[in-house]
Computed example of a mutant assay.
Amino acid sequence: MKYVKVLGPGCKRCQAIEAMVSAEATRLGVAVSVEKVTDYAAIAGYGIMSTPGIVIDGKVVHAGGVPKTEDVAKWLSA
């Protein structure tokens, strides 16, 4: 199981990333637990200055903007 956190205020980009992660996980057959983190202090704790951000299994893999679908697939497959 991959533990994914989507860091951001809950904007449309954050929602798009959450949907993208869920869709790619389903496509790849990877079990995921997706958590939204909207608390700015918690987000800053990851060292992210630009949202949305993605943390997978405790590691920051993306910050700022919406990533490419193939990048999300690569991160979930690792």
Rank of each mutant, 00 (worst) to 15 (best):
Q15H: 08
A31H: 09
K5I: 04
A63Q: 15
G45M: 06
V6G: 01
V32R: 07
I54F: 04
M20G: 06
V6H: 02
G47T: 04
Y40M: 15
I48R: 07
P67L: 05
A42H: 08
G10Q: 09
Y40P: 02
S77R: 13
A78V: 12
S22M: 12
M20W: 02
K68P: 01
L28V: 07
G10L: 07
A44L: 12
P9I: 15
K12H: 09
G10V: 06
L76P: 11
T38A: 11
V21Q: 06
E35H: 05
R27T: 15
D71T: 09
A25R: 11
G8W: 02
I54V: 15
S22E: 15
P9E: 13
A63L: 01
G47Q: 05
E35N: 05
I56Q: 10
V6T: 02
I17E: 14
C14N: 06
K74C: 02
I48S: 09
K2R: 15
T26I: 10
K36N: 14
W75Y: 09
E70G: 04
G65M: 03
A78C: 10
V21S: 04
V6L: 00
V61H: 10
R13E: 14
S33W: 00
G65S: 03
A78N: 14
H62I: 01
G45D: 07
V72C: 10
L76C: 12
V60G: 11
H62G: 05
M20F: 04
V4M: 01
V4C: 07
G58F: 00
D71H: 11
Y3I: 14
D57C: 01
K2F: 00
V34N: 08
G45T: 06
K59A: 13
I56P: 03
V72Y: 09
V66L: 12
G29Y: 09
G10R: 08
A41I: 11
M1T: 13
A44N: 10
K36S: 14
I17K: 07
P67M: 03
E18C: 05
S50H: 08
M1C: 04
C11G: 10
K5D: 03
V72L: 05
K12T: 14
G45P: 03
P67D: 08
P9Q: 12
K59I: 07
D71Y: 06
V21A: 04
T26M: 05
K12S: 13
A42V: 13
M1V: 13
V55S: 01
E70D: 15
M20C: 02
I48C: 11
T26C: 00
A19G: 07
G29Q: 11
G58N: 09
A25F: 06
A41Y: 12
M49I: 10
G47K: 03
V32P: 01
T26Y: 00
V21I: 14
P67R: 04
V72F: 02
M49L: 14
K12F: 02
T26L: 10
R27L: 13
G45C: 05
K5M: 11
D57T: 02
V21R: 04
V72H: 09
D71Q: 14
A44E: 12
G10T: 07
D39V: 02
K74L: 06
I48T: 11
C11W: 11
